[in-house]
Amino acid sequence: MYAKVTQLILIFLISPFLFGVINRIKAFFAGRKGIPLLQTYYDIFKLLRKGAVYSKTTTWIFIAGPIISLSALVCACAFIPFAGHRAFFSFEGDIVLFIYLLGLARFFTVLAALDTGSSFEGMGASREVQFAVFAEPALFLSLAALVRITGTMSLSDIFANTTINTLTTLDPAILLVIGALFIIFLTENSRIPVDDPNTHLELTMIHEVMVLDHGGIDFAYILYGVAVKFWILGTLLMSIIFRTNSGIVFFDYAVFIFGMIVLAVAVGIVESIMARLRLFKVPNLLIVALALSVLALTLTMRI
């Protein structure tokens, strides 16, 4: 029990740190010094100290949106294993609840965006739901492939059984799932090549434009929610690729956290060397993820 609570607290404490890492990497590629590693924490605390400005058009949905989204994401954390150790909650089929909690967060982010009546936010919301239509089946199928590979049905069991060892036996199905999950990870977290988290005002943005009118405490909730979501989806990836099973709990934890930092570095590198895709090409990218997971499933059907 203590271990599980410690895991949750670690997730809640560390997740905003990863954005600092990404920014440092991008700054390094651009030849800049970069913002402090702890900038996300500073931002959140600064926002929590602010008052509020609301549009006359908005209703309580606008305020409820960030609150509900953050609760859903925090709730989803309870189902995420940490360093291959069992999550706070786990049961057969928790995959479904987990993905639908992410869906709930998205649903209210979108509604809060539409509540402003701004055409920019409508545009962002429209794109967000469009990409989700493709990303959700891809996520379901790639996790289904892992179910088929490991023979277990909860996130905790799946990631307890897929370790670096499964990788070294080089099951091609696992490699395909990793590819699919990486694409989904970038999409769901609104990173390049799907979305650009840096510029708030461009017409081409998706997530950032949806939260354009939010400020103060509401925006702090959103920012923190985004950080937690980054951790949650990153875990799906790094629990397969980067963790040890040494028996010493704190060593495992440290290795896993280091793995998440490596993931942030990888995201930073992708963002530095790649351009954003044209918007109408994004569905094609997501269909690639879908195809990879279907291919992985096909491989597991071998007798």
């Binding site: 929590l48 602010k50 008052g51 509020a52 400005v53 609301y54 549009s55 006359k56 058009t57 908005t58 305020i63 409820a64 609150i67 509900i68 953050l70 609760s71 859903a72 925090v74 709730c75 309870a78 909690l101 709930l104 402003t116 009546g117 701004s118 055409s119 920019f120 005002l201 354009l212 009118d213 103060g216 405490i217 509401d218 909730y221």
Partner: peptide, 30 residues
């Protein structure tokens, strides 16, 4: 858990906003 999280974050928001200014303006729309 979800309902209690909702309650918790809503109360936290209300407590933090106590005594601060809350403005009402048109939607910014860039």
């Amino acid at each position: 858990l979800l309902y209690s999280g909702l309650f918790l974050f809503a109360v936290l928001r209300r407590m933090l906003l106590k005594g601060r200014t809350i403005d009402s303006v048109p939607t910014w729309d860039c």
